[in-house]
Structures are given as C-alpha cells and as structure tokens.
Simulated scan of single mutants.
Amino acid sequence: MELRRAFRLNGFLVLGVLVLLIIAIAAEAHGLNSRADDHGGSSTLLGAGLAVTILAAVLAASGFVVVNPNQAKVIQFFGRYIGSVGESGFHWVTPLSSRRGISLRVRNFETQKLKVNDLDGNPVEIAAVVVYQVVDSYKAAFAVDDYEDFVMTQSETAVRHLATIHPYQSDDANAASLRDGAEIAGELTAELRDRTELAGIEIIEARITHLAYAPEIAQAMLVRQQAAQVVAARSRIVEGAVGMVGLALDRLADQGVVELDEERKAAMVSNLLVVLCGDRAAAPVVNAGTLYA
C-alpha cells in the first residue's frame, strides 16, 4: 500500500468555525429558554435542532490534532488507514479517527558487544553504531510490530553475518578484513538498508565501534601480532644493512682505500651486519696488529 496524505484542514480555521457554532448553540439555548418561559413549554423542533448542533460540535472537536516538527501522524478511521499527516502544526482531520505518532527524527543506537567467530574461526568481540531515520510512516506503523526493536534485531544479525564472512585481519592486501573500517562500514550499511527497507527505515550510516579478540585468545593473538611486527622490523633492518654493507665495499674498492681478499670481505660483512642488525650497542675489538693478525 502506498503512503498517502490524509485529509486535513487548518486547525485554527475549523476552531473559529467551532467557536461560532458554540455561540450559536448558546443563543439557541437562550431562545429556547425564553420560549419556555413565555409559553410554558418548549418547542420540540428547536430541542432537536439544539441536540444535533451539540452533537456536531462534539464530533468536530474530536478531529483536532497537533503534529510536532519531525513527526508524522498515522490516521486510522475504525481500523482503516486513511493517510498520514507529516506537516507540523495544528490540523483538523477526520473526526472519530485514531492517530499514532511516528517520530521522523534521526536516531542512533549501539549494538551490544557480540561474540562471533570470524572467517578464520577466531572468536572476536564486535559492536557497531547504527544511525537511521523513518522515511515511510505507514510501513513503520503497520509493516512490523515495533520498528525500533526490528532495527535493533536486524542490526545485530547484520553485524554477526559480517563478522563471519571476514577475518579479523588478513595478510592479503586485496582481501578485506574487519579492521578495514571504511570498506566494512560500507558493507554493513548496504546490508542493513536491504534488511530494514520493508519497515520504512533509511539507514544513514553504520560503523564498527568495538573490535577485539575474545579474552580467551586475546593474549595469544597479541603475542602473534608482536612477533609479526618484530619479524617485519627485522626484515627492514636486514634489508637496509645489506645495502649499507654493499655500499661500503663498493666505496672502499672505488677509492682504493684497501684491497681485501674474499675471506676478509666475508669477515667485514659479518662484522658490519652484527653492528647494524644487533639490538644492542656494539663493543668493537681494536686490532693493534696487522691486517691478518
């Protein structure tokens, strides 16, 4: 069923008409009392007219509704949906109708910390914040029982699904992992939009706010990460040290400072690598003899 606008009139205009109607009722009642005093009775016709006028005023008064900014009123007439009022202000709608307020404000909430196994089977804790807004008051009111609970449940489901199809971290630069914030946020937002569209909800943004290994494996994974960083740092140091050793040998040969045989070159390379790659300050041994003793 498509969203449609409910019949409405300016509330202040109808209120003015209602005030005039009340004045007319008061005047009619006064005239009826005067006739009763003069003639000792009342006119049946005037009495019926007065009753109808009072009933019309009561019915008209039941049609007033106030719509706040960023709010919509879903109008039902004896169970049938007759439209929605989204303009803020004082309105008059179909009398005897029921109205349900739906907030159109932007909302956000954070999911609970969920424990899920990632693509590699490692237990991780993950949570996300979801920003959403109601864009279809009819669907939000009638397509689901409670659209707020619906969004929360679908958000947790989407976060769980996202965690199971991606690893916590990946050594492959082309493979997305849960630590790739922008890409994961885009996937989560797109999936939530598909899940909540039937409830008239627009997902504005969804992002991961908490991501960590589960406590039972956190320490082991921390050691693994530290080892990986140490290996990466050592590889960088060795790469630089080899380049520096090669540069030193080339410069010594080009400038003719000293001529070294292969054995002495190997010894020099070994010593330079120890000095350059060691994690402690080197303690050199000064050779006071000849080059070969």
Rank of each mutant, 00 (worst) to 15 (best):
S43A: 06
I204Y: 06
G49V: 04
R160Q: 10
L55T: 10
E202P: 00
E239W: 13
K113F: 03
V130F: 02
T290I: 04
N108K: 11
A143P: 04
I25D: 03
L9N: 01
Q154K: 12
R224P: 09
H39G: 07
V106C: 09
Q219E: 14
G121P: 06
G41N: 10
V74H: 05
R224F: 08
A127V: 03
F90M: 10
A140G: 15
I208R: 00
A60G: 09
A282S: 03
I23P: 05
T196H: 01
L20C: 11
M244E: 11
S42H: 12
P95W: 02
Y147F: 15
G63C: 13
P215H: 03
I201S: 02
V129P: 01
T53N: 13
T290H: 06
A185H: 09
R100T: 13
Y213S: 02
G278A: 12
R99N: 15
A27L: 15
Y132D: 01
V242I: 11
D254K: 09
V74E: 04
H166F: 10
T196W: 13
S84A: 14
F109Q: 04
Q225V: 13
L247H: 09
V257E: 10
G47C: 07
I204F: 09
N68I: 09
R105L: 14
N174R: 11
N68W: 09
V14G: 08
Q225F: 06
L272D: 03
F150L: 01
Q219Y: 13
P123Q: 07
Q255W: 05
G289L: 08
A227S: 12
V124C: 08
G243N: 05
D37C: 02
A293K: 12
R251L: 06
G181W: 03
L114P: 02
G200R: 00
E2W: 12
I237S: 00
A56L: 15
E262I: 02
L272W: 10
A282Q: 02
D37F: 09
